[in-house]
Amino acid sequence: MSGNRIAKLSLQPMTNINERSVSNLSAIPKEEYLYKCTSACAGCSSSLCLRYVLKAAGPDSVLVVPACCTSVIQGMYPGTAMNVPVYNIAFAAAAACASGMSEALAALGKETNVIVYAGDGGTVDIGIQALSGAFERGTNFLYICYDNEAYGNTGMQRSGSTPLGARTTTTPGGKPTAKKDLDRIVEAHNPPYMATACSAYPLDLYKKVKKALSIEGPKFIHILAPCPPGWRYPTEKTVEMGKLAVKTGTWILYEREFGKLAISGPSKAAMKKPAPLEDYIKGQGRFKNLSPEVFDEMRQQVEHNIQRLSREEAGVC
């Protein structure tokens, strides 16, 4: 036994799907690379996203996973819910480890997709140095940050990605500072492709992963992934929560190819006429007892982001 490696389960050949032919969920491949036996919480959206990411990536892919809920979701040795190679690595190290792996596979002449699947903490906090280094170096990989806006693995402490006002176990009175703008940090590295996505729009996510993997160089996708125990809403509201994030303009779906911004379908309408922010806030226990001042600040942030991105897309900078 070399390390506690788990033998790869037999992989089934994947049907060749042309990205553009996928117009509805039923066209997404039936092959599963993440089995249903995960140990995720009921209503977990990040594990759902991982399922679609792997469907888009197919079997010639390796996942690099830092410490996060995804470390747990895989299951306990000797069992596993994963049907692609998964390389678990220390919390701060995912992007650097993926750099090494990507170079090694290239040296071997392989075209295997190297995909980091990391939480927000492992991305915006402890992992940001490795992330920045890999993007600056031009590592050929896809870095996906699934953002449940806190440290889920350790029981919901604040992260740099926790929004203003949200209660976590280390911000019991609500977080006093704003969410770190990860996308603008990544954007500053001028990657060939970056996008935002949301678990409530799996087809959009699927297409973005497909497109990202068709491009050479460092790619980035930032997925908003609502989390029932962390955000404190009933498990069956997971899809609704993601949709509300987009409809209120709190979370804007877009792609940026070689710097050029394109707002994605679901967000286009939302940005013209956003649903009231209250709709998104009121169903979440983490925003209970939000003061009117904080709420106002949140609303201003949302409006500001909508304006900034609309102006950019329209070319009025």
Binding site: S39, C41, C44, M76, P229
Partner: peptide, 8 residues
């Protein structure tokens, strides 16, 4: 404590 989540 196992490494399990809700429901296990």
């Amino acid at each position: 404590y196992g490494a399990e989540r809700r429901g296990a």
